[in-house]
């Protein structure tokens, strides 16, 4: 029981990180109908940016942890946003209107390029960092097993939920959000009505990348260890989360992320840690076969 509760806490933490990445996949898919294969690598770059910022701030002698976290978050989100913008501008925009698989192939190239760019610029070795906020909240103890909620997990919950609230407000209540939803429905019509579709798409990429960067920062803080390869597996899992929730649905992406996090945590805890990736990938295959529209996705009727 206690063990299960602990896995539940761990799973939700992990799931929140996946959910943040999944939002980026789902937004991009919703608006231009492509799988942004390089999104996982933006997440990886976000975690490297966070590491760089934290190291630099420490060297500058900033010791207040909240200030450091806030600065790092803003820095990582902004710079990753530039990455998101550039990726769309360079690799996807010229291919809009080309055959369907063209942007996906370009995205694969971008993903490989980013991975190896980080390998060259930051080195291939694993980077690790001591925990910024050590310590935990003991929830209860049973048969000598302590169920605990670390401060770090609390930070992750708070940051993720705050961002999601802001983000939901952005998409549902602002004119930018309305433009995004309009482009999602019908790009051509939206542009005829005077919406700057290129700008809207760019903004989507920037927001998606910023959220992924925050996820990258959380990943770094939570695990304390990153390398240039983390984007690939995390990316596929977050994509799974997006599909599970229903591609195009924002709440779906978060729910899907939580489910994937839970599946992974419980699978590692009870079945086999070595095969945890197999579990996540199998879920992807099964979900796509059994319910390709996901939990909250719209069923689209095939137009003939």
């Amino acid at each position: 029981m206690a063990y299960a509760l602990q896995q539940l806490i761990n799973g939700i933490t992990l799931g929140m990180i996946y959910g943040l990445i999944a939002v980026g996949y789902t937004m991009v898919y919703g608006i231009i109908g492509m799988i942004n294969f390089a999104h996982g690598d933006v997440f990886m770059i976000g975690s490297f940016l966070s590491l760089i910022a934290i190291t630099a701030l420490t060297a500058m002698g900033i010791s207040s942890v909240p200030l450091m976290l806030a600065l790092t978050l803003v820095f990582a989100a902004v710079v990753a946003g530039i990455y998101g913008w550039s990726i769309e501008r360079i690799a996807y925009r010229p291919l809009r209107g080309s055959f369907r698989l063209a942007p996906l192939i370009s995205a694969i190239g971008m993903s490989i390029a980013l991975q190896n760019f980080v390998q060259v610029s930051q080195g291939a070795r694993n980077k690790s960092m001591p925990s910024l906020i050590p310590g935990a909240l003991k929830i209860f103890e049973q048969d000598g097993f302590v169920v605990q909620l670390t401060w770090m997990q609390i930070v992750i919950f708070v940051v993720t939920l705050t961002l999601l609230v802001i983000f939901t407000w952005l998409v549902t209540k602002t004119s930018l959000g309305r433009a995004m939803r309009a482009c999602e429905q019908d790009m051509k019509m939206a542009s005829l009505l005077g919406i700057d579709t290129n700008f809207t798409i760019s903004v989507t990429f920037v927001i998606g990348a910023a959220l992924a960067a925050v996820a990258g920062m959380m990943f770094l803080l939570y695990y304390g260890s990153i390398d240039f390869y983390i984007g690939f597996v995390a990316g596929v899992k977050a994509f799974t989360a997006a599909v599970l929730g229903g591609v195009g649905s924002l709440p779906g992406a978060v729910i899907g992320g939580l489910l994937i996090g839970l599946i992974e945590a419980f699978w590692s805890g009870y079945a086999s840690a070595q095969y945890k990736d197999v579990a996540a990938f199998s879920v992807l295959i099964i979900v796509l076969i059994v319910m390709p529209t996901g939990l909250l996705g719209r069923a689209d009727v095939e137009k003939v």
Partner: peptide
Amino acid sequence: AEYRMLIFGVALVVVMVTRP
């Protein structure tokens, strides 16, 4: 060797964009 895959990735993007 380090740059090989980097060049490869960039080349893939360039080919898609210029000659899909």
